[in-house]
Design a protein around this nucleic acid. Structure first.
Lengths: 153, 153
DNA sequence: GCGCTCCTGACCAACGTGGTCAGGAAAGTC
DNA sequence: GACTTTCCTGACCACGTTGGTCAGGAGCGC
């Protein structure tokens, strides 16, 4: 139940691209790496994955770089996480709806489904536009309002 | 963002222990392994971890076995997952509140905090007693009610 | 044709995952 | 006290993932 460095990097880089969407020219990988302090060569692999998933586009050569394939308010954090980490909240790399539980754990399936749904309720609501503007959806505000949301357990 | 086999196994075994709590004698590892179809030797390692975290207790020898250290309605799924997987929703193995984001990803921290809070809202509400009775907390019912909670993306 | 930038695959060390194996140590039984 | 039962513990193992680096190739613009 952890977030990989790759996913974190991917979202951060995408946020930079979202902010640069008004500019006419594409953004170089190096600028993204500098802005978010990400190892350049690692970032290029990540951007390539995002490109394969149709989230970003790129052009080579002088004046080349990366840009978002769609408007920033149409790209969700969930999409980016899935692109680099694969499906969200799988159990043992199979989706929770495909697992058969028996005996006294029969209802565990519903719990894992609820876990996935709760993750989606956050990740699919937040767009890159929300991220750069800082105006996050109300669900985020409600979840981060309680002080103990900010402390470890 | 996935659930490991270990965590799944741990919760399932704990559910069996919860159901057997009314019995006077402890439950053998073999019976747990059979009931939930878990490799016995692997399960014993998991039960040992749960014991080290004070969630189960054990006695050796004939008439030995495992039992819950506390009543089933005082043990949450979150506790069990933490015992075998470590902290929930860490980013790059550091807690989200300790990460410093800059530039256009400044608000990403709030998103990860919200992700963790949403996971907690499910995992800390569901107890082992809920699991075996099938009477899950209302938050689970609300999240699993929508049909598209049950389909992959 | 030359420089810039993305693109791609190979490689790498360290760690996590999902186990198995072999033996030791307590508890109960005869 | 021997013996059986069951937990306890550490070592080991194959394989994949993570978080990168390295070297070169392929387009693009000038």
């Amino acid at each position: 139940m952890r977030v990989s460095a790759k996913a974190d990097y991917a979202v951060r880089a995408a946020a930079e691209l979202a902010a640069a969407q008004k500019e006419e020219s594409p953004v170089k990988g190096e600028r993204l790496a500098d802005a978010q302090d990400i190892p350049l060569q690692f970032l290029e692999h990540i951007l390539l994955e995002l490109k394969h998933h149709g989230i970003v586009r790129a052009r080579r050569g002088a004046k080349g770089g990366y840009w978002l394939a769609r408007p920033a308010d149409e790209v969700t954090v969930a999409e980016i996480v899935r692109a680099v980490e694969g499906p969200i909240a799988h159990v043992q790399s199979t989706p929770p709806e495909d697992i058969e539980y028996r005996g006294n754990s029969k209802h565990l399936q519903e719990v894992w489904i609820a876990v996935r749904a709760s993750l989606r309720s956050v990740l699919e609501e937040v767009t890159l536009a929300d991220l750069v503007s800082g105006e996050l959806p109300s669900v985020v505000g409600e979840l981060t309002a309680a002080p103990d949301a900010w402390v470890a357990r």
